[in-house]
Design a binder for these strands. Structure first.
Length: 897
RNA sequence: GGAUCUUUAGCUCAGUUGGCUAGAGCGUACGAUUCACAUUCGUAAGGUCAGAGGUUCGAGCCCUCUAAGAUCCACCA
């Protein structure tokens, strides 16, 4: 098979992926023990969405890890997922309903669920295609959808156990309520922003006086059940325990003493609305105050009297202010800035609202999690996140898991029908039957147990409640367990890779739930990636118009280029910039390996096969020894970097091996003498090392090469190359010589005097041509004195440095001496050029002199000689010797001019 | 208010128990080029490692303080 001459990723990527899928290479192999298995789950992308740049990073990281471990011979299992994304999807669907002029309130819960299910099924597939385009080597047959039957079963099982353990309770508490979406949110789902608002002073009167309270929310005064003052506040001490009249109403409310009132703030007196403010709720608990709801689920006023009921909070605020003014009770207003909670999806101001919800008592879960974290059972990347997580868990409040959205897993709780009326009559038909029962028949809206009828709670679980089971359900922990302790080699996961932004929402909950359900932490390591910012370090957002679409980059440069580009310059937990440049650099590397492979294939094709012993890899010259040394050391470096999740550095290591070492020096040296078997073996090795990061191009090359078999995806990670270390080191020295020759040649051609002579032409030109200093084709002549390394490798040096010739000076040194301590080498240039070089030489001598001084100063310090490691001191001593030799040679040279 | 992180070349970032002359990619300048690759090759310029102290034979790295920025948590009647 012949290589296409140009690197065109679009030509082969989808075909290669299809080939992998057809061969079934994504599935885990059979495993013998835990150490031979590697498991990782994909944070499930939204089933009906498109992938964004964050998914691109996620997959690049996770798939590189997976492929690396697969090459290392482990049974790698990368488990894909799809998220029903409860609220996210719901928002999209509700918008679609609105577009049709309908609302969710036209349908029952079950009807809505069915509709969204169909909607998601229609949209699904897109996301999976994109995950494939990014090259994810995940086991598709194991894809888990967050509403799959086994997920629901597992979630119900956990919930039942929690219910029996007394960790689930029904509470009337304040929840973060979005009046637009009409659902409650967890604390972490709420976004705060600094908003401009106003602080109004309102007079609450009593016989013979008034007390002024400050508030930003006058409309909630109908829900006030007290006024609080600080017990230490001398101004109000005498009023504590007395009553004031609530403005615009006939009610009287008490004045209570509570630390919550800050004498420094406003007037020092604060109205208490336990049903609509978190702090006031706490104050209410302390003073046993009634809770009066004045805002209903739709965000309208309720129970405030006919003039106000039905108004929106904003309308009501205006009216209340107007009425207070009329009544002469409004005493002042001032503008303030305060942080206000918003719905993270629609921006609507969150209304803290009193609701009956299911809560999970998290104390025990958090305590256990902290215990395991403190025992270092999970390693974090970056390490600092462990303590951040512990701090969070220490202050964790009970978890509201009820969501008033039909699209999700139904909460398996049923309430006896008669209890609904019983609240008003205080009578139950059968006093022994519990008010709430657990039952998994959530497909029914009404059930009968023991002659008592129950109706299903309409609410669904917070999606984090189900997704906290992710490692458990994806690895099928239960069936794998089958009684034996070490029955499932894939649980705990080797690593959990996800965004640092969901450390609390997801990682924390997986840890708590994993420990609760299995007794073990759900993963051994956590790698958190930061946000991908735009090229200027700004957050990407639609409104800023700086969103980068990963699929566009894949189409333009190839999947491999995208992966290499997004991994570059990135480290754990940091928000870092990303630009197309890095993808271009990735594409260039792919192009490099493509052409390198074509060249090697060309050499193999041209070599008569009978001269090669099949598979016999040995080194025959120092370039070959050197490349083996470099491959070995790059390989162990990459192993170390992958072990420590330093992806960007691993990419840099392989980039440098391929480009700066393999192509620039080894392949160049192989243009003189071929070692076909070694060329084959070394190319295979670098392809394998690149494969985790650039799977498509490496697989395509692998399958195009005439001698390779099977697929690179499940090839064996390269082993150790044998080489002669002295010979390898000699090649390294030769690289130093060639670099110095090139550098000096460039310096000569740039000398102002030489440039002038070149320009003048005539006699000057003739003289210069004799030494060919213009560094054009043909080049200069390198003369060696007593230098066996260069003498025995004269042709190689000539080719690598593009010289006209490399010859012995026959004891007659002339031209410019190279600034190399251990070599006696001269560039043969005419006398006027040597003279012109004198100044540069002086500078060079001074520079080396400065380096020598620094080294000498160090050795003069007795403390250094005494305290620094002996090896280091010895090294310094050698360096001084070398510099001395060099400076002496250069000075001799200078004297000759 | 509390916590965590960041500050290194023009830009984006590496720099792993402290050790020689601080690296990469991109960008810049000069030069090259008929076959592996212009998605190339060669050479070079560019850094008082945010600032100030301290520990040490030795600090980009450890300690203290300061400044700037980011993120998270809490509070804001």
């Amino acid at each position: 098979m012949k290589f296409a001459s140009a690197y065109e990723p679009g030509e082969f990527e989808s075909e290669i992926y299809a080939g992998w899928e057809a061969a079934g290479v994504f599935a885990p192999r059979a495993v013998v023990d835990d150490s031979k298995s590697f498991s990782i789950v994909m944070p499930p992308p939204n089933a009906n969405g498109n992938l964004h740049i964050g998914h691109g990073l996620t997959i690049a990281l996770e798939d590189s890890l997976t492929r690396y471990h697969r090459l290392k011979g482990e049974s790698a299992w990368y488990i894909p997922g799809a998220d029903h994304a409860g609220f996210e999807t719901w928002v999209v669907y509700e918008r679609a309903l609105e577009a049709k002029g309908e609302t969710r309130f036209n349908y029952s819960r079950d009807e809505l669920y069915a509709q969204v299910w169909d909607f998601v099924q229609e949209q699904r597939g897109n996301m999976e295609l994109q995950v494939r385009a990014l090259g994810a080597s995940c086991s598709w047959k194991d894809l888990t959808f967050t509403l799959d039957e086994n997920v629901v079963r597992r979630v119900y099982k956990t919930f039942e156990r929690m219910w029996k353990d007394g960790m689930v309770y029904r509470g009337e508490k304040l929840v973060n309520y979005c009046p637009k979406h009409q659902t409650a949110f967890a604390d972490i789902e709420v976004e705060y922003s600094e908003d401009k608002g106003k602080l109004w002073d309102i007079a609450y009167q009593y016989d013979g006086g008034e007390i002024i309270v400050s508030t930003t929310r006058p409309e909630t005064l109908f829900g006030d059940t007290a006024v609080a003052v600080n017990p230490e506040d001398a101004r109000y001490k005498d009023l504590i325990g007395s009553f004031v009249k609530l403005p615009l109403t006939d009610r009287e409310i008490p004045i209570v003493a509570d630390e919550h009132a800050d004498p420094e703030y406003g007037t020092g007196a604060v109205k208490i609305t336990p049903a609509h403010d978190y702090d006031d709720f706490e104050v209410g608990l302390r003073h046993d105050l009634p809770r009066v709801r004045v805002i209903d689920d739709a965000g309208k006023m309720v129970g405030c009297g006919p003039e106000y009921d039905g108004l929106s909070t904003e309308e009501c605020r205006k009216k209340v202010l107007k009425d207070l003014k009329t009544a002469g009770l409004l005493r002042g207003e001032k503008a303030i800035t305060h942080s206000v909670a918003h719905c993270y999806k629609c921006g609507t101001v969150i209304e803290p609202t009193l609701k009956e919800q299911w809560f999970i008592d998290v104390k025990r879960l958090a305590r256990e999690a902290i215990k395991h974290l403190e025992r270092d059972e999970i390693k974090f990347h970056p390490a600092s996140k462990k303590q951040v997580l512990i701090n969070y868990l220490e202050g964790l409040k009970d978890w509201n898991i009820s969501r008033q959205i039909p699209w999700g897993i139904a909460i398996p709780m049923f309430r006896r029908i008669d209890s609904l009326e019983a609240h008003s009559t205080n009578e139950l038909a059968d006093a022994d039957a519990p008010e709430w029962i657990f039952d998994t028949r959530t497909n029914l809206s009404e059930i009968e147990v023991g002659g008592v009828r129950y109706v299903r709670d309409e609410d669904t679980f917070d999606t984090w409640f189900s997704s906290s089971h992710w490692p458990i359900v994806c690895t099928d922990w239960e069936s794998g367990q089958s009684g034996a302790k070490d029955g499932n080699p894939y649980y705990p996961l080797n690593v959990m890779e996800t965004g640092a932004d969901i450390l609390f929402a997801w990682v924390a909950r997986m840890i708590m739930m994993g420990i609760y359900v299995t007794g073990e932490v759900p993963f051994r390591e956590v790698y958190l990636h930061g946000l991908v910012l735009d090229a200027h370090g700004q957050k990407m957002s639609k409104s800023k118009g700086n969103v980068i679409n990963p699929m566009e980059l894949v189409a333009k440069y190839g999947s491999d280029a995208f992966r290499l580009g997004i991994l570059r310059g990135r480290s754990a937990g940091m928000n870092q910039a990303f630009s197309e440049n890095s993808v271009v650099a990735g594409r260039n590397l792919c192009n490099k390996i493509w052409n390198l492979s074509r060249l090697v294939q060309g050499i193999v094709d041209d070599s008569p096969s009978e001269t090669e012993v099949e598979g016999w890899v040995t080194t025959e010259n120092m370039g070959e020894d050197w490349v083996c040394r470099e491959i070995n050391s790059a390989r162990s470096l990459i192993e170390k970097q992958m072990q420590e999740y330093r992806f960007a550095e691993a990419v840099e290591t392989i980039h440098s091996l391929i480009w700066d070492k393999y192509a620039d020096w080894f392949i160049e040296s192989q243009k003189l003498y071929h070692n076909v078997n070694l060329l084959k073996a070394t190319l295979e090795a670098i392809l394998k090392m690149l494969h985790p990061f650039a799977p498509f191009v490496t697989e395509t090359i692998w399958q195009n090469l005439s001698w390779t078999e099977g697929m690179i995806i499940n090839a064996e990670w390269p082993g150790e190359f044998e080489f002669d270390p002295i010979s390898a080191e000699n090649f390294a020295k030769l690289i130093g010589v060639v670099s110095e020759v090139r550098s000096t040649m460039t310096a000569i051609s740039k000398l102002p005097k030489v440039e002038k002579m070149l320009k003048r032409g005539g006699e000057d030109k003739k003289i210069l041509d004799a030494g060919d200093v213009s560094a054009e084709k043909g080049g200069m002549v390198l003369l060696y004195g007593d230098d066996s390394l260069v003498a025995t490798n004269d042709i190689l040096v000539k080719n690598l440095a593009k010289l006209a010739a490399v010859e012995s000076c026959e004891g007659q040194p002339r031209g410019i001496r190279l600034a190399l301590a251990n070599h006696e080498l001269y560039l043969d240039v005419p006398a006027p050029v040597v003279a012109a070089y004198a100044e540069a030489l002086d500078e060079r001598i001074l520079a080396v002199g400065r380096e020598l001084d620094a080294l000498n100063a160090r050795m003069m310090n007795p403390n250094y000689v005494d305290k620094a490691p002996a090896a280091l001191v010895e090294e310094t001593r050698r360096a001084i010797e070398e510099k001395n030799r060099l400076i002496e040679g250069l000075k001799n040279e200078r004297n000759l001019i």
